[in-house]
Nucleic acid binder design. Structure first.
Ligand SMILES: NC(=O)c1ccc[n+]([C@@H]2O[C@H](COP(=O)([O-])OP(=O)(O)OC[C@H]3O[C@@H](n4cnc5c(N)ncnc54)[C@H](O)[C@@H]3O)[C@@H](O)[C@H]2O)c1
Ligand SMILES: NC(=O)c1ccc[n+]([C@@H]2O[C@H](COP(=O)([O-])OP(=O)(O)OC[C@H]3O[C@@H](n4cnc5c(N)ncnc54)[C@H](O)[C@@H]3O)[C@@H](O)[C@H]2O)c1
Lengths: 210, 210
DNA sequence: ACCTCTTTGTGAAATAATGCGCAATCTAAG
DNA sequence: CTTAGATTGCGCATTATTTCACAAAGAGGT
């Protein structure tokens, strides 16, 4: 929803995090929180929280704080999560299986609606409640499903090709788990989750006692 | 390796990425690259690449560029990857299974050396080449293994408890896959991979055609 | 109605990261 | 040995993000 205002990327990333925190609070029957509460409870910076929200309007009441339900609803709307988003998965391997079987997805308003692979031994088999489909069918399948988000869970060597197939199937946003850089048209957004990169950063922070 | 110089976190994150790119280049028998080559090949900004490296010394030769082998070796050393790092995995569920079976780990100098769970039905079973162990044994097991990095792949509700167990087992760096905030002592570094957060950010960037 | 206490929303200051521009360095060729 | 061409490393300007600090807003008590 890239509207008029220019929202910093770190703000956007935190926004999604706030949602998680609010789910937690709801479970604990917390109805109202102040930004200071949030800071002590969830380690988020109070000033930053308020600043983040300020890009999108006014959300709280001075002297009181924020209504958990209302804030959750409004952040969901900001992130286009008011209705469930369909997601395509390419690569029905180990990671793909974990993702397809990942239940919180549903409650957070995402749903993997189709899984694709190019391995003839996998095509037609079940992956949880999905039947694995031939990647060659992706364009026609998505003509029906109209998903706009795709996940790449194929080996790095097939990632570029997969990205191109997703784009040709009309997907506009891609989450890439393969450890490789992907060239895409500028109207497509890619986010990259790189497990090895995260481990490498941690490794840097190891104390060098040995 | 938090030595004298203060390295920006984004630089560190990119450094790990550069390693991936160099592996690629080696496969294609590229011996030397300039920062400009890198920009056109891998979408990284040439000036930024040079700046990133400059925190750690001099790596290239004016007029020529960088030697791929040498640079890979030096970045590996910066990130403490010159020798294999042992990693503990807690949570032998869907995600844990994918991670434990993830082969590139080995080639990138990480190795999951033990998997733990608290489910009696899982303890003792095999997870690829590992035998799933009782989480209650983590302290004694790691007295022997001496791993310093831990992965949390348990449900969010058990994440805090798991973090504490890892810390008490002498782990100093944690990679958390559970969608929740974790309180840890300040000498421990945590990195958080949040799949739902990434999807939410993508969702924000959906064009609002509907 | 008034005072006190709390907490928001937001300009403005401070800090952090990025990207520009170029002197310095190296190669290769004549 | 000199010149031309390429490319690094890095100071510094620019841009982005975080943090501060406070006026304005509301609650609740008297
Ligand atoms: N397993 C993990 O824990 C993990 C963690 C982080 C990142 N990754 C990355 O995720 C990706 C998948 O990992 P994995 O462990 O599931 O691998 P995998 O080998 O288990 O699965 C890959 C799947 O992709 C399919 N595939 C290959 N080429 C294809 C193509 N051109 N079109 C469609 N499907 C194709 C294969 O048939 C296979 O089913 C890899 O890039 C890996 O580096 C995996
Ligand atoms: N599956 C995915 O694709 C995926 C993706 C992103 C994030 N995650 C997150 O990763 C975590 C694991 O996901 P999953 O799908 O593998 O779940 P899962 O239910 O398949 O596995 C969780 C495992 O943790 C074990 N466990 C529970 N409490 C424990 C405790 N106190 N100590 C030790 N072990 C314990 C369970 O016995 C189970 O084996 C969750 O937090 C999930 O939100 C999963």
């Amino acid at each position: 929803m890239p509207n008029g205002i220019k929202v910093p990327m770190p703000t956007l990333e935190r926004l999604a995090n706030y949602l998680t925190i609010f789910s937690d609070l709801k479970i604990r029957n917390v109805e109202t929180v102040s930004s200071a509460d949030l800071e002590s409870r969830a380690g988020i910076n109070a000033a930053q929280f308020r600043k983040d929200l300020s890009y999108f309007g006014e959300f709280g009441r001075p002297g009181i704080g924020y209504n958990v339900n209302e804030l959750q609803a409004r952040i969901s709307r900001i992130l286009n999560l008011q209705k469930t988003q369909s997601v395509l998965l390419v690569g029905a391997g180990n990671l793909g299986a974990a993702l397809a079987g990942y239940h919180p997805l549903r409650t957070e308003n995402f749903q993997i609606v189709a899984a694709f692979d190019n391995n003839p031994n996998k095509i037609g088999k079940q992956l949880w409640d999905l039947t694995i489909q031939d990647i060659d069918e992706i364009i026609s399948v998505n003509k029906v499903l109209q998903a706009r988000i795709g996940i790449i869970a194929v080996p790095a060597s097939a990632a570029q090709e997969t990205a191109e197939r997703l784009v040709s199937a009309n997907v506009v946003n891609i989450l890439n788990f393969a450890p490789t850089f992907i060239r895409i048209p500028s109207n497509v957004t890619v986010r990259h989750i790189d497990f090895l990169q995260e481990l490498a950063v941690l490794s840097y922070y190891l104390p060098e006692d040995d």
